[in-house]
Nucleic acid binder design. Structure first.
Lengths: 109, 109
DNA sequence: CAGGATCCCTTCCGATACTG
DNA sequence: CAGTATCGGAAGGGATCCTG
């Protein structure tokens, strides 16, 4: 249970899942689509998602090789609950930032 | 957006929110209700949740002091989307574990 | 192009001891 | 009871270089 949510809670995982939700992407396309992610973290996060069966990897034996990543059927099922959470975050981020500002102001006294 | 999900992705935060969903708890009660959390992490996680306005803290000036933590109205609103995700995790953990076993078996060749 | 390997710095976090 | 303070090991993750 916890390890499942750990993956969802991972910043890069959620971003990658939402990028792949639209259409399959190649490695370098993901690198461009997700600014600030390093090659290292992209590789590692994709491996984790693949290991969990949320993403699948297809290698085209061209020269130079191309690799495409896409959501699996299982991976597609997480989009709805994940979207619910992102919608909540979107609805609530103003209230959260206000709460933080209030808290920090009181702490700074 | 990311920092909001970071808090949700935090293992202890989600556990504390679901414990507090039933009723308010005192510090020591939370310590007992969430096995394996250290005093340090409990304090820190509660501060973060309080800072974000999801949890509120009430101090009773007794001797020795008692402190009660409860969800705020904002904190209560996250329970539904969070529940959706936990339900997904519950539905999918078998498939995920199977995918992991398959992946690890192929990696070990 | 896609990714493995290495170095190294930073952050996380548990254990322990102390306080109002 | 409900914390705070400090230390030290473990883990996260960026930068860089190398390869099929």
């Amino acid at each position: 249970m916890r390890d499942v949510l750990d993956r969802v809670g991972d910043k890069w995982s959620t971003l990658l899942l939402s990028v792949l939700a639209t259409r399959p992407h190649r490695f370098s396309a993901l690198l461009r689509a997700v600014p600030d992610i390093s090659k290292r973290m992209l590789t590692q996060t994709l491996r984790d998602l693949e290991r969990d069966g949320l993403v699948e990897r297809e290698v085209f034996p061209t020269k130079p090789p191309a690799v495409e990543y896409r959501l699996t059927a299982l991976g597609a099922t997480i989009l709805e609950p994940l979207g619910g959470l992102m919608a909540w975050a979107d609805r609530s981020h103003a209230a959260i930032r206000a709460a933080r500002a209030r808290f920090d102001a009181l702490s700074g006294l």
